[in-house]
Amino acid sequence: IKYLTDRGAKVILASHLGRPKGQVVEEMRLTPAAARLSELLGKPVAKADEAIGDTVKAQISKLNDGDVLLLENVRFYAGEEKNDPELAKAFAELADLYVNDAFGAAHRAHASTEGIAHHLPAVSGLLMEKELDVLGKALNNPDRPFTAIVGGAKVKDKIAVIEKLIEIADNIIIGGGLSYTFFKAKGYEIGKSLVDNDRLELVQEFERKAKEKGVNFLLPVDVVVGDDFSASANAKIVDVDQIPADWEGFDIGPKTRELFAKTIAESKLVVWNGPMGVFELKPFEDGTKAVAEACAATAGYTVIGGGDSAAAVEKFHLGDKMDHISTGGGASLEFMEGKALPGVVALNDK
């Protein structure tokens, strides 16, 4: 934004907040964002109460070179998430050039991210460029050893990325809720832990494929179990084949933290997507914290894949120790799966 205003451009900003489902929701207006942005830019930011139409056009006509106008939440329009061509055209009528700097929304084909790019010269912003450069290099020409850390709750969300990583990584670290499906596939008692019973064969296949390709596939060796999903739960550390039948796994244990940290320390590139446990609850935060600390300490280049991993890094005040924190959880995951991102495909400067 500063780059453009410093060069005398009239900058019209479009963004969304929350999921208002095509309706005006008062508490999802972007008015507070305009106020905060003017503090950050050190200049006034005008705010429109709509995102298209004559009133907005009138406000734009009053802008001087270097001025900034923030449009209202684009998701107040039902056509936004449907990528309605008429809405895209209405957005395009407001400007001469389109810059997409929203990597976090690039995996969505919406009117303000994809549709508009068919009507205006459309280019990538500086943040979008950095995201694509960093993640693109990690996928196409990684520094080695390359370690990928995959956590989070559900196996189904991470299938495609694990498949892709087996092709390119040297080490794959598995943690979080999805690890219990691997344990169950080995015949271990997992108690009340999260499990995906439809994918027991698939996770065995992952391990087999990794072995075939000489990829070091690391699963937890011990876990922290709790008798309740709460901050006041009783917690204890057990080996992965010793989970009590009425307890639930919520975090990786100390031996695992050490094992994972050693691998991270020896890596030239680390890409982390998904926490190691329920880091929002005090008794189960230590595993995710240990991985975050290992990423902060390694001499290797660290890429944090947005979403919960980014939230964890911020929670433990380690953000400034990471080389790149992606602004897109879902987008970085889809990019790493090798999927084309509609918001990027629509741009002119591939």
Rank of each mutant, 00 (worst) to 15 (best):
E72W: 06
N73G: 08
R75C: 06
R75E: 09
A78H: 11
A78D: 13
A78W: 04
G79N: 04
E81S: 15
D84F: 08
P85N: 05
P85A: 03
A88D: 02
A90W: 07
A90Q: 15
F91I: 02
A92K: 13
E93W: 02
L94E: 10
A95F: 11
L97Y: 14
Y98V: 08
V99I: 15
V99H: 05
N100W: 06
G104P: 04
A105Q: 08
A105L: 08
A106F: 03
A109L: 07
A109S: 12
H110P: 06
T113V: 13
I116A: 00
I116F: 02
I116R: 05
A117Y: 11
H118R: 15
H118N: 15
H119E: 12
P121E: 02
P121F: 10
V123S: 10
V123N: 09
S124N: 11
L126V: 08
L126T: 03
E129T: 14
E129W: 06
K130M: 02
K130R: 09
E131T: 02
L135V: 01
G136H: 02
L139V: 06
N141K: 15
P142I: 03
P142M: 09
P142W: 11
F146S: 02
T147E: 10
T147L: 06
A148V: 13
I149G: 05
I149T: 03
G152S: 07
A153H: 04
A153M: 07
K154G: 03
V155P: 09
D157H: 10
D157Y: 07
D157P: 12
I159G: 06
I159A: 04
A160H: 10
I162S: 09
I162D: 01
L165F: 12
E167M: 11
E167F: 09
N171P: 07
N171R: 07
N171T: 14
I172E: 08
I172K: 03
I172T: 06
I173Q: 10
I174L: 00
G175D: 04
G175P: 10
G175M: 09
G176F: 04
G177K: 00
L178A: 01
L178Q: 03
S179M: 13
S179L: 07
Y180I: 00
T181G: 00
A185R: 04
K186C: 00
K186H: 05
G187L: 11
G187R: 12
G191P: 11
K192Q: 14
N197L: 04
N197D: 15
N197P: 00
D198E: 15
D198P: 07
L200D: 06
E201S: 14
L202I: 08
F206K: 11
E207V: 12
